[in-house]
């Protein structure tokens, strides 16, 4: 791997560069890594040629700008700042991790088999930089991996909403499918958008266990509206994100994760239906587990809608 420092690199970045260079041999999931400070590219590490590297740095710089916009959107949800963003296309995956203040680390791999590994490696590297250089705590980006260490809680307030004039049988099928996924332990919200319009949603925002997040007289209702607003914006946000990343991958986005301080929002575009499935958890440790469950249900939803 070769390190390339940008003309924008500052002396204070030396320690970050050294740490990354030392850590990378132990982080095999990462093919390419780039660091940005206040939108300025600082350094890159990877095996790519210069001609390949420059478009990547440019694309990742665009990504950092887009992450800033998504961060603004996420903050209104009340679950904290955006600290990890994952974008996966048909041929590549990247993760943009927020390090500290306005510093971002972007890692990528073109081997989709190693997507998880790359994601976890970047999260580890971000946490190391935070802890060792900025003396900041671990924010647990990507959540906890492994079995849950707290007992499961029974869901008490399963709530669904359906668009008018849904095909007969679809509502029930979706309710059944989501009933097996949405609960207070990890996946707190799941929604389906088709032809750029709302189709179905299920949530447990009304559960007592989530009262800290959605308590109060209009808490659950307000949260549903906020997530609906977020979903509505995705119709335009997703193509803009795809355009920003065109020098990294021109393939369609298949997975998009917005990991905030408390939980994450997951977006899985449905290519043939002009829509997507959106999932939410507000438990940070369960971010990984929640996605695993969602990844299981998304193909089944697509199947319900027709060929995908």
């Amino acid at each position: 791997m070769r390190t390339t420092r940008s003309p924008f690199a500052h002396d204070k970045h030396d320690s970050v560069v050294r740490l990354c260079e030392q850590a990378l041999p132990e982080l095999p999931g990462i093919d390419f890594l780039a660091f940005y400070d206040r939108g300025f590219h600082v350094f890159s590490i990877g095996t790519v040629t210069d001609d390949e590297r420059r478009p990547l740095e440019r694309a990742f710089r665009q990504l950092v700008t887009e992450v800033g916009r998504f961060d603004d959107s996420m903050r209104v949800l009340g679950t904290g700042e955006l600290m990890r963003t994952v974008v996966q296309t048909d041929d590549a995956v990247l993760q943009c991790g927020h390090v500290f203040e306005e510093e971002f680390l972007v890692g990528a791999t073109w081997d989709l088999e190693r997507a998880d590994m790359m994601d976890a490696d970047i999260s580890r590297l971000v946490t190391r930089i935070r802890q060792e250089i900025y003396l900041q705590p671990d924010q647990l980006p990507g959540g906890r991996r492994g079995p849950r260490d707290t007992p499961g809680v029974e869901s008490t307030a399963f709530h669904t909403e359906t668009a008018e004039r849904l095909e007969p049988g679809l509502e029930g099928a979706l309710a059944t499918l989501s009933g097996g996924v949405v609960d207070v332990n990890d996946v707190h919200y799941l929604a389906l958008y088709r032809d750029w319009g709302f189709t179905f949603s299920a949530d447990v925002f009304g559960s007592r266990a989530l009262a800290h997040w959605f308590g109060g007289p209009s808490g659950a209702e307000a949260a549903r509206k906020l997530y609906a607003d977020l979903a509505a914006r995705l119709r335009t946000d997703l193509p803009e994100l795809a355009y920003a990343l065109r020098l990294f991958s021109e393939q369609p986005i298949r997975r998009f994760v917005l990991d905030v301080v408390a939980g994450a929002v997951y977006v899985y575009p449905l290519a043939h239906h002009n829509g997507f499935v959106i999932g939410v958890t507000v438990f940070q440790p369960e971010v990984f587990a929640a996605e695993q469950r969602l990844l299981g249900v998304v193909p089944r939803i697509a199947e319900l809608l027709g060929s995908e």
Binding site: G39, F40, R61
Partner: peptide
């Protein structure tokens, strides 16, 4: 245009 958007974002945010 993409680069100009980036630097304009940096400028405005800064």
């Amino acid at each position: 245009f993409d680069e100009s958007y980036h630097w304009d974002s940096v400028a405005w945010e800064g």
